[in-house]
Design a protein around this nucleic acid. Structure first.
Ligand SMILES: [Mn+2]
Ligand SMILES: [Mn+2]
Ligand SMILES: [Zn+2]
Ligand SMILES: [Zn+2]
Lengths: 159, 159
DNA sequence: TCTTAAATAAGAACGATTGTCAATAACATA
DNA sequence: TATGTTATTGACAATCGTTCTTATTTAAGA
């Protein structure tokens, strides 16, 4: 919660348009679930969204929240923090470095940049707390995945 | 796998020093598990580390790999990609933005920076694949957590 | 070598997420 | 507006990554 009325409404409008375009039904559950995530600044998990939706829609199931969040993700209306639905991954490189991550297969590689290490972080960030470190996450499609057909291509070329 | 011999050995030396300093036992399992993660460039998950360790130590248990990875994390010898051991979290802000993340409680807030949006990503990154987007993750301690005593303070001031 | 606490392996347990299926509701059509 | 078709929902079982419990083994110091 805490996003401005104006911004929330803009997001709701985008939602209605996208959901109709996708040809899926506009249910009260989907409306309320999206309203919750669209008005949240805290990047909530499914359980938190569930609790907030229940305030207005006490009979909603956790299950429906899960399904709706993944649907919103597919529609490009929301995103996940870090790599979604994955196992914890580890790194023994403790030098200051950055990552390239493939959005299809999760391939992750290190890269270095002196320029990046020296970037200025806006002063306003200090209002959130003290800063320990910063690292850039570059998301793209690795060469191997680029060579394969994208499994997410729903329309067209199914001939 | 694929880290140079020299670098791997440097990491092994750091490991032996840290593990003795921490006063925990140097077991063959810990040694082999660290050797695997220290020589990997692919940021493996626990299952992958487990499989690689089993090649040299067929009786090791998945459990031990889990326990060892968390121990290595506590000792500061490795790190996790993204926020560790957490549920998936969502974001309805689809504008180009960056994040401040509290390393203690996971609080996550958006921030914007035109300067950051214009950063040059090293040419060498394109060797990994095509680039879709980039976002900076600033890790620190939020004000609320800074006000509380750090639960991870093991030594000293337990008086 | 002997002692002792720490670490391991095995398997049960747990918690987040997903699958199954009968009941329900959205929406196109009459 | 009433009806039919089909996607969606809610309940609950199942799955999968991770953690806990316990008996056994082992590292390391005496
Ligand atoms: Mn790395
Ligand atoms: Mn955000
Ligand atoms: Zn890939
Ligand atoms: Zn915090």
């Amino acid at each position: 919660m805490e996003i401005s009325f104006k911004e929330t409404n803009k997001r709701m409008a985008r939602f209605e348009k996208a959901i109709r375009q996708a040809g899926v039904k506009v249910t009260i559950q989907r409306l309320e679930i999206f309203r919750v995530i669209a008005s949240s600044i805290d990047h909530p998990d499914v359980e938190t969204v569930y609790e907030r939706v229940r305030e207005r829609l006490p009979t909603v199931s956790l299950d429906t929240v899960y399904r709706t969040m993944w649907m919103l993700l597919d529609l490009g209306l929301i995103s996940t923090l870090g790599a979604s639905r994955d196992r914890t991954r580890f790194d023994a490189n403790m030098e200051n470095h950055h990552h390239f991550v493939c959005s299809r297969c999760g391939l992750t590689r290190d890269f270095y940049s002196e320029e990046l290490d020296g970037i200025k972080i806006p002063e306003s960030v200090k209002d959130f707390g003290s800063i320990e470190k910063a690292h850039l996450e570059v998301v793209g499609v690795c060469k191997q995945c680029a060579a394969k057909p994208n499994p997410k291509a729903q329309e067209e070329d199914t001939s």
